[in-house]
C-alpha cells in the first residue's frame, strides 16, 4: 500500500548533496592531517603504497557505483573477487592470458545472472547478492580446499600489475582506466541516462519505456567484471589466490562509493566521485597507521563512516517509508 501523507515528512525533503565539493575538501583535510604528522607521506614511496592499496578498492567501487546509482546494493562483490582469485591462479597457471580472460568473462556472466534474477523475479538486490555471497564463498572454499594457492612464477598475464607506468603502480593505472571507461559509458550511453532515471524515479522511468531488466543486468554484469579485475590486481600483489583474499574489501568499497557522494538511495552521484571516495578511504586506512590509531579500529571507523556518509547524502523524501 502506498504511503499516506505524514506531516513530518515535509521537513525531510532536505538532502545535503555533498557530491560537489565536500568529499574533495574532506580528502584534502585528511591528507593535511596525515602530512602534519608525517611529512614523508607525500613522498613517492608512500604515495605509491597508497596507489597499490587503493587499486582493488577502486575497481570494486567503480563497479558498485552504477548498482548504487540504481538504488540497489551488491553484497557479493568481495566474495566474487575471492572466488576469482582462486580461479585466476589455477587458470592463469594453466592457460595464461586466456585463463585470465576466461575468469573475467565468467565473473561478468555471474554478475549478469544476479542482475537478471534480481530484476526479473523482483527480489531485493541485497538478498540475491547475499545468496550469491554464500554461493561464491562456498565455491571458492571448495575450489581451493580452503587454502592459499600460489601463482606460478612469472605469470605475465597477471604480474604486469606490479610494474610501474610513468612511475605509478600499473594496478592503479588499470583501475583509473576502468574508471574512465565506466565514466564515459555512464555519460555517453543511453544506459547511463537510464541509470539515473531509474535511480531517482523508477516508476516514471518505467512509464517512459526504459528497459529496466537490461539496465539492471548490465550494471550487475559490470560489477562482476570489476570484481574479477580487482582479483587480478590482488593476486598480482600477493602472488596467491585465497577464498578469503578480498573478504575485507566489501565495506571499504561500499564506503568509498558513499563517501564520494553517491547516495545510497540512488539517482545521485557518479564514478568521478567514487575516485575521491576511494582515495579518502585509502588515506584513512594508511593514515590510521601513520597517526598511530590501533589498526583493529579500522572496522569501527569504516562502519561509522558509512553510517555518517549515508546520513548526509540520503534522499529521505524519496523513501516515504524507510525500511
Amino acid at each position: 500500500m502506498s504511503p499516506v501523507n505524514i506531516s513530518r515528512r515535509k521537513g525531510a525533503s532536505q538532502r545535503l548533496d555533498i557530491g560537489g565539493y565536500l568529499p574533495a575538501v574532506l580528502l584534502v583535510v585528511l591528507v593535511g592531517l596525515v602530512v602534519a604528522r608525517d611529512p614523508a607521506f607525500l613522498g613517492v614511496a608512500s604515495l605509491r603504497s597508497v596507489a597499490v592499496q587503493a587499486a582493488p578498492i577502486l575497481l570494486l567501487a567503480v563497479g558498485l557505483t552504477p548498482v548504487i546509482l540504481l538504488g540497489g546494493i551488491d553484497l557479493s562483490v568481495a566474495a566474487l573477487t575471492s572466488l576469482c582469485s582462486v580461479l585466476l591462479v589455477s587458470w592463469a597457471n594453466q592457460a595464461g592470458i586466456t585463463g585470465v580472460a576466461g575468469v573475467v568473462a565468467l565473473a561478468t556472466a555471474a554478475g549478469a545472472v544476479v542482475g537478471v534474477v534480481h530484476s526479473v523475479a523482483q527480489v531485493p538486490s541485497f538478498i540475491v547478492t547475499l545468496g550469491a555471497l554464500g554461493l561464491y564463498s562456498g565455491l571458492s572454499l571448495e575450489a581451493s580446499d580452503a587454502t592459499n594457492t600460489p601463482l606460478a612464477e612469472g605469470s605475465p598475464a597477471i604480474s604486469w600489475v606490479n610494474d610501474y607506468f610513468a612511475g605509478i603502480p600499473a594496478g592503479f593505472v588499470f583501475g583509473l582506466i576502468v574508471l574512465a571507461i565506466v565514466g564515459l559509458m555512464v555519460r555517453f550511453l543511453p544506459w547511463g541516462r537510464y541509470l539515473y532515471a531509474m535511480g531517482s524515479a523508477e516508476p516514471a522511468a518505467l512509464m517512459s519505456g526504459v528497459p529496466k531488466i537490461r539496465v539492471r543486468a548490465a550494471a550487475f554484469a559490470l560489477t562482476g567484471m570489476t570484481s574479477a579485475m580487482a582479483a587480478i590486481v590482488l593476486v598480482g600483489r600477493t602472488s596467491f589466490g585465497s577464498p578469503t583474499l578480498a573478504s575485507g574489501l566489501l565495506l571499504p568499497a561500499i564506503a568509498a562509493v558513499v563517501v564520494g557522494g553517491t547516495a545510497i538511495s540512488g539517482g545521485v552521484g557518479g564514478v568521478g566521485r567514487t575516485l575521491v571516495g576511494v582515495l579518502t578511504v585509502t588515506v584513512v586506512q594508511i593514515g590510521m597507521v601513520v597517526i598511530g590509531i590501533d589498526p583493529v579500529l579500522q572496522n569501527v571507523i569504516f562502519g561509522a563512516v558509512i553510517i555518517v556518509a549515508v546520513a548526509l547524502t540520503i534522499d529521505r523524501a524519496k523513501l516515504s517509508v524507510i525500511k
Binding site: R193, A204, S208, G267, D315
Partner: peptide
C-alpha cells in the same frame, strides 16, 4: 510527480527519456 517525471533530472533528460534510442 510519481510516474510522469524524474524530478531530480534536467528538463532535457526528461524530455528525451522515451525517445533516447
Amino acid at each position: 510527480k510519481h510516474e510522469g517525471m524524474v524530478a531530480e533530472r534536467s528538463i532535457s533528460e526528461n524530455l528525451v527519456l522515451a525517445s533516447t534510442p
